[in-house]
Design a protein around this nucleic acid. Sequence first.
DNA 1: ATCTGTTAGTTGCATAATGCAACTTACTGC
DNA 2: GCAGTAAGTTGCATTATGCAACTAACAGAT
Lengths: 163, 163
Amino acid sequence: MQRKSFAHMECPTARSLEVVGEWWSLLILRDAMRGRRRFEEFQESLGIARNILSRRLKRLVAAGLLEKRLYAERPRRHEYRLTDKSRDLFAVLTALAAWGNRWAAPAKGPAMVLIDRETGKPIEPVLVDRSSGKPLHRGNVGLAPGPGAGPETRALLASLKPH
Amino acid sequence: MQRKSFAHMECPTARSLEVVGEWWSLLILRDAMRGRRRFEEFQESLGIARNILSRRLKRLVAAGLLEKRLYAERPRRHEYRLTDKSRDLFAVLTALAAWGNRWAAPAKGPAMVLIDRETGKPIEPVLVDRSSGKPLHRGNVGLAPGPGAGPETRALLASLKPH
DNA sequence: ATCTGTTAGTTGCATAATGCAACTTACTGC
DNA sequence: GCAGTAAGTTGCATTATGCAACTAACAGAT
């Protein structure tokens, strides 16, 4: 049987994971964020099997997360570049890295730390609301039905009790 | 062959994905964030196969992301609760949901929108540095070797040119 | 005491998904 | 003509995932 798809779900988290939730996909995008572009670069850097890399790149291109472009005519050479859509995943990847450093670092401590490029000082990413600047946490963020909410989603959201 | 593990990698993103990057894992945690606790609740809500749910819950418990506890002696009933470690994934899940609404929403628009619980108004999550409040983006965030950096990581970080 | 229902799984079997290594194609440079 | 590089593809083996049916342990009704 095929792996179950999340595409039909209305939840935005599920819909995101449908595209970037496969094994390797986010790591490929992380590599792309670090400036990697070519097939062989990704392959060496990740140690991913070539056929899987090939498949993932195709999916990511199809999903609009990478753009495949020819950068040399003879010999034909391709590269994969970030799009606005994938660049916008920066917050997700950074939050994930920060979490990893807090909770999944090796015994000796984190191998890489996030720093401010200008000051060189370590940074601590926090999620806030853009307009109010309020830090977001489980207690103050809620979910409401949006324009595309079906009856099922409405029922779900209505049933969610505050924790 | 076994699926390749990310556990030996030093990159914090890879180490995070090792724990939460499997198919379904983040959705289970999202459900837990919404207050779900019991096996049957997760199963119904997600439509996940029961054997897979069983395996995922075990892994998440082993990784310290869920705590299994007995909440009724006769009949014996268990529940799975968030831990500090998994509660701290809130920023990741919220950033992912926000991204999904921006880039992967259904044609009619997002089915669920994030709101401020107190004001009821929609929120727009942004990642900032805690102390400076500066918004973080690809241009101003860098990586530096941390205390646990091996020679390979040092070499990698040294080779990263600014984009 | 038996029947029905609930909760939390486990087991068996079929079909994807992943990994590895070797092969291919299209070039360049020596 | 031969080695080398970039970007894949193919074949085959092993996992992972999905589905449905089954189990265990109990509760409440008949």
